[in-house]
Amino acid sequence: MNIVVLVKQVPDTETKIKIGADGKSIETSEIKWVMNPYDEYAVEAALRLQDSVGASVTILSMGPERTVESIRTALAMGADTGVLVDDPATEGSDGLGKAKVLAAALKSLEFDLVFCGHRAVDSDENQVGIMVAELAGIPHLGLAVSAEVTDGKVKVQRPIEGAKVTMEAILPALVTFGGAHAVWNPRYASLPGIMKAKKKPLETKTLADLGLSADEVGAQAAKVSVTAMEMPQERQPGRKLEGDTVEKAKELTRLLHEEAKVI
């Protein structure tokens, strides 16, 4: 069985975000780039299938050269090969453009399953995975917290309010993953894993290799664009009330009434 995991490199969630001079992008000079956490759950899900039923796992990503680091991380965890679409023409592409690139790259790969995070934690658009499924003409199962493969079908569980639904789809299929770190506990690469990852095959492709042109998927083709970014308002620091319990209660009531005007 072949599984392709789509991986995006995103700024670490603790990064101090600064808005760039153009007012619609972020400054990237002081950013620590990491694998999108939801994609990491997808890698973990694929590796669990690799362990249980046997599978060859390919990591597919697009982005500049630094993206190699995230692919190597997934290879160190246990994935077998990597493919990176690195083309400056993809800069500024929207979700659909990215999906087109990934779908085109998928064509050259053999796969029974495509895994990815349900969203990337940078721009939180929740689109690319679903669009790739559509473009590849395969079914999509969303927000999975588990994945099993039996008899040519993939079965996943998805939490809904207070319960879980189990869904299945015929292969080939695309699954987007949800959950949280505590649900998946993605494996920590062992040292031999890290050593081996350095020697695992990692192919770099351009748009031309995929038979695509910049005006199909690049900034010009983007139907959605960011027009402005602004930082959230700084929160006022909390206030500590002094005195004994009765005094504190009185003061709190006064503040809620006079300042917050909620009572």
């Binding site: 494996r187 920590y188 062992s190 040292l191």
Partner: peptide, 21 residues
């Protein structure tokens, strides 16, 4: 740690924190 990645989740968390930040 190096061969089996066998340690508690909180240790894994802190190791990732060192790696990224």
């Amino acid at each position: 740690v190096l061969m089996e990645s066998n340690f508690s989740p909180e240790v894994q968390n802190v190791m990732r924190n060192w790696e990224t930040n």
